[in-house]
Structure formats: structure tokens, C-alpha cells
Design a protein around this nucleic acid. Structure first.
Lengths: 340, 340
DNA sequence: GTGAAAGCGCTAACAG
DNA sequence: CTGTTAGCGCTTTCAC
């Protein structure tokens, strides 16, 4: 029980006493908000180091008009390559900006998102990045006050706001078009939720391209609403075992792609696969793979630009930015010739 | 510019006025800290709903002795299965406990970890989970004041503290032992940092088991210090192309395993692989795979138990908990018989 | 260039 | 059961 008790952290007053100045002076030194005699400032800084003092973010942000130099990030879920990449990039951006990034998880529930937005606001973050969950049926989003918000990756419903997302419609359209040109006439579509963004955009693109080429998609080859990889595996395995199996299968998320690849591996099928998200184990694919490459550095820089602008000045009208995507093509490694 | 400006959030005073009571009463209703006439309470609650009011976490936590019902989590990096799983579990646990989890990234830098611990403390989190970064050469960790800390997954240096981690030594020892029993005499070891925890524990186990069976590990089959998958791929490819290739390769992290599998796929090798971490694309492995399964639910429940105890009462001596791990065995899917 | 004092939003005595 | 008041740690006028 000796040194285990948490000694309460020093306050600005402790620093002031130790440095032999007033609290105001310490504050001025620490914030650079006004000129302080260099010798005095030095004494203050020494006291700060000695006490290992840090300004209390809570107390500090109580005063109106003071920036907390903190950004919040609300993600919907954590099981995805996408999520790790986003956090890593955003964290770096925040650091460059001199801000701290605080991340929280909404678990795809609108109620939780709403709660966390308020929670973060009550912690006085300067701004929030939000990967919106679905479910705001009452249009409550537009009534949320507090810190400015930039929505990321998904277009939220029920609000006109700043949004940065990739052009998933175009990404999917290009993939399907390309497969069509390659001669594929029986393509399967494996998707998650298709009535909400961004699934809806992808699904629309899929349908549009196939219809443009005449004919409607074969309903036996469309299976949506998958939330986990397992059901996707079953769906694809079923298709592959049927009388008229697909020659290519298109899917939307990395999670589902793994499910699809599993089915393909299980069945020993020899078809094309494509996905609008990347996975880091793509090289292990038993079949040729086309992936949409999303540049998260680009996503983040756009989002940061929007948020900082909004933090500085709340006047601009909200914008939605649709970012371009790239493409990655992979052929199975196993049968490839050995590199010299 | 009309409704775009952020209206400053309502305060407890606004609620009090609207409900026709005093601030204290509002506070009491919101905290359930004392009995309030049910009718009055109802009026307050209505006002709260009407104004969409949330207590300011900043102001609230300024008072000494008040819990913020917030936990912090500091992770070293974000590119790993491990990380997603940890966050997901911890977030759920926090929610069950009625607390909010705030996550931040240390980027494996001790300076950043130190900064973020203070930053989080200054936000008055009730406690912190930390995946410690290496580099505390001055033993500063033990001097950190502020919120109680439970270290997770890694044993930090320079401090006696609460730690929860898996028994990586045993996990690795068992794997190597098993491979030995299966007849493998030329095993390769691909590792990351081996002079810091937990790499050091795994590397020690590897060496110990091989030595116990007589003979030292072949230095040509040991390659450590890999921080990315690419260099691991090169190292393994080199081994596989050599005169005396390994018959099995053991690696430590999921990231490195992917690099290893890539080399195996590239070279078309037919050897065993093993890893002390799981990956979600394991079923795509071209070769038989043994993985250590770590139960993160267990990790998290232990960590939460320790932290909450510490939050309640700072008296107990710090403990280190080494949790048991499981095993997963996977055979390549492609050549397997089709399921009926 | 520096200090004293008010007040940010909230909770916890203390009265009534 | 409810209101009044002091004060948490900090920044910012306002004096000096």
C-alpha cells in the first residue's frame, strides 16, 4: 500500500508555487498566450518538468472558446482491414496536426452512435469523424448539436452534412463491366446490406451494368444480407454445386471475400473473384482476384481538410466528396513460375 | 450559415430553469444520488429530453472523487487481428460495465505512450488498459501518476504493475515440442523483436526446447527482427531455396505468418507452418498449419477484473497473470474431399 | 510583465 | 425533499 496509492496529479497551482509565480503566469507560459519574461518562463518550465505536470484537459476545456486539440473518431465496427487502415492514417494525421485522436466503437447501432457523439461532445472534442451507423429514422442526426462532424466512408441518411467516401458505385460498375467484357455472363453477387449505404451504391452499380448489357441478373446468383463470412461461404458453395454455376463471383467487403474464397477452395472451383475492398491475404487466393484499392491516405486528408475548415469556420455549405479508387489484379501464386 | 452554426450545448442550468427546479435537483435526478419526488423527477427528465441535454463530462470530472465512467485503451499499433479482437472485446466489456472506452494509438513509441497516459489521465479516465511500447529506459513508468493502469499482452519493463498476458512461452514451447515429436529436425524460426516482450518469451521457448532435445538451432534457419511481412517472405524464400531447406517453419505473429505463407506459396514448398497468433485467412494456407488460439474474452475479463479492483481500492499488490492458450490445427482445403 | 479575481458546468455539503 | 453555496483546475479580462 506504500507507493501504490495514486498521488493526485499536480495542479497549475503547485507549479506556480514551486516556480514562485502566479497561476496566470504559468498558464501564459504553457499556452504561449502572452509574453512572459524569458527568465520567469524558464523557471516555470523547470517546475513543470520537475512535477511532471500536464494541464488538465477537463478543466481547460471548461472555458468557452478553448480548443481541446482532440478529435474523435467513431467507427461502426472493428473487424476489417478497412478499420485498421483508417485508424492508422487518421491517428497520424491527428498527430501531425498536434491533436489527439480518441476512438470509440458504435457497433453499428444508431442509438450508440448518437450516445457517443454526445459523449464525445461533452468531452469537448474539437470535431468528430464518424463512420455512420444506420437507423436514424427520425432524422435526429440533423439535430445533433455539439462538435462539428465529418462523416466518413458512408453517406448517412437523414442529414445534409460533410461526407467523404469512395466512389463505390463507379468502382463496382467498372469491375462488373470488365468481367462482362472478359466474357463472363454468369456472375454471382454476394453482398451485405444492400438497402443502406454503401452497400446500396454497390448493388445499384451491379444491377445497372448488367441491365445495360441487356437481361436481368439471375436471381439464383444473387445473395445478399450476409453479415458474417460463414453464410457467404454456404451461399457460394451452393451456387458452385448447382447445375449452372457462375463463372465469376463479385463481392463487396473483405470479410465476405474470405467467405467466398473459402467456398471456392472447398469446392475446388476454378472461377474469377472480385471485391470492392482489399484484404491483406489476397495473395493466398486459389483463384484470380480483382480488388478495388482504396487510398485511405486520400480519404483521411480529405476528411481532415473538411473537419479543420469546419472547426475554424462553421459557415461553408456541407459537401459530399466521392473519391476515386484504384484496382489491383492478382493471379494465384501456387502455379506461378518461381522467381529467379 | 443558418442552422449550420453549432449552438452551444445546454447546461444543467437550462434544464433547471425549464423544469422549474434548482440545478442540484437536476443533478440528483441525473445521477440518482439522492431521492427526488417522482413528479419533480419526471419534470426534470422531460426537460432533459426536450433539450437533448447531456452532462458535460469535462465539468463533471472536475470534482474530485467523481468517476468519469470512462476507460482508456492504449494500443501499440493497429495492424493486426489481435488489435481488432482486443478492441471489440474490451469495448463490449466497457459497455457492460456502463463505461465508455476511449482508444488511442501509441505507435510503439514510449514517448507517445507516456504522453497519452498523461493525456488520458488529464481527461480523467477512471483507469487505463495499456499495451506497452518498449523503450522506458529510465524506469519512468513506475513514476507515472494519474489513473490506475493494467498492462495488457506485454510485460512492461521498468515497473511492477498489474499485467495480463498469455503464456506465450508455454504456447511456443508446446508447438516446437509437437513438431519435434512429429519428426521435424530442421525447423525454421521467423520472429520480430526478440529482445523485448513478448518476442523474448517466444524466442526463449524455441531455444529451450531445441536445446533440451540436444543440439543448438541451426543459425541459417533463424531469422529475427522482422517488422513487416515482406522481409519475412524473403528470408523464408531464401531458406527454402537453400541446399538444406527446413521441413517446418515457426513464426510469432499473424503479420509474419502471412509473409511466411507467401514465401511457401511462391516456392511451392511442402512444409509445415506454425504461428503463435491467429489469422482469419488461415484456411487459405497452402500447407498444414498449427496456430495458437488466444481467448481474448478471457484476456479482457481478467484485465477488467484487475482494473476495476484497482479503481475501487488501490491497496492490493500488483499481479501478473499468464493466461493459457489453445491450439488450432488446419489442413489445406484445396485437396480435401468435398463435403457432402 | 505580472497578479487578483471571476467564471466555465457540475456536485456535494449544508441548511431549511 | 429541495435550494444555496463553495470550489474542482483552468483561462482571461482587468488592474497594477
Amino acid at each position: 500500500m506504500s507507493r501504490n496509492l495514486q498521488p493526485k496529479p499536480p495542479t497549475i497551482k503547485d507549479v506556480a508555487v514551486l516556480a514562485g509565480v502566479s497561476m496566470s503566469t504559468v498558464s501564459r507560459v504553457l499556452n504561449g498566450s502572452a509574453a512572459v519574461q524569458s527568465e520567469t518562463a524558464e523557471r516555470v518550465r523547470r517546475a513543470v518538468t520537475q512535477l511532471d505536470f500536464v494541464l488538465s484537459a477537463s478543466a481547460r476545456s471548461l472555458r468557452p472558446g478553448v480548443r481541446s486539440m482532440t478529435w474523435g473518431l467513431l467507427v461502426d465496427a472493428v473487424e476489417s482491414h478497412y478499420f485498421s487502415t483508417l485508424i492508422a492514417e487518421l491517428d497520424r494525421a491527428a498527430q501531425d496536426h498536434g491533436s489527439t485522436l480518441l476512438v470509440s466503437v458504435t457497433q453499428k447501432e444508431w442509438a450508440r452512435e448518437k450516445h457517443l457523439i454526445k459523449e464525445m461532445s461533452s468531452r469537448r472534442v474539437d470535431g468528430l469523424f464518424v463512420v455512420p451507423a444506420n437507423g436514424d429514422v427520425l432524422g435526429e442526426r440533423s439535430r445533433l448539436s455539439g462538435a462539428p462532424i465529418v462523416y466518413v466512408d458512408r453517406i448517412p441518411s437523414g442529414v445534409v452534412a460533410d461526407v467523404v467516401t469512395f466512389d463505390y458505385y463507379k468502382a463496382m460498375a467498372e469491375i462488373v463491366e470488365e468481367l462482362w467484357v472478359q466474357g463472363h455472363r454468369r456472375m454471382a453477387f454476394i453482398g451485405g446490406e444492400v438497402d443502406t449505404d454503401p452497400g446500396s451504391r454497390r448493388y445499384a452499380a451491379w444491377n445497372d451494368v448488367l441491365r445495360r448489357h441487356g437481361g436481368t441478373p439471375d436471381p439464383d446468383l444473387v445473395s445478399v444480407g450476409h453479415l458474417v463470412a460463414g453464410t457467404a461461404t454456404e451461399a457460394v458453395a451452393g451456387m458452385l454445386r448447382s447445375d449452372r454455376p457462375p463463372t465469376a463471383v463479385v463481392t463487396t467487403t473483405g470479410l465476405l471475400l474470405l467467405g467466398v474464397l473459402r467456398a471456392i477452395a472447398l469446392e475446388g472451383a476454378d472461377i474469377e473473384a472480385a471485391c470492392t475492398e482489399e484484404i491483406d491475404s489476397a495473395f493466398l487466393s486459389p483463384v484470380p482476384l480483382t480488388l478495388v484499392a482504396a487510398d485511405f491516405t486520400l480519404l483521411v486528408s480529405n476528411a481532415v481538410e473538411l473537419l479543420t475548415a469546419r472547426i475554424e469556420n462553421a459557415g461553408e455549405p456541407p459537401t459530399t466528396r466521392l473519391l476515386p479508387t484504384g484496382r489491383v489484379r492478382l493471379d494465384p501464386l501456387r502455379s506461378s513460375t518461381l522467381p529467379s
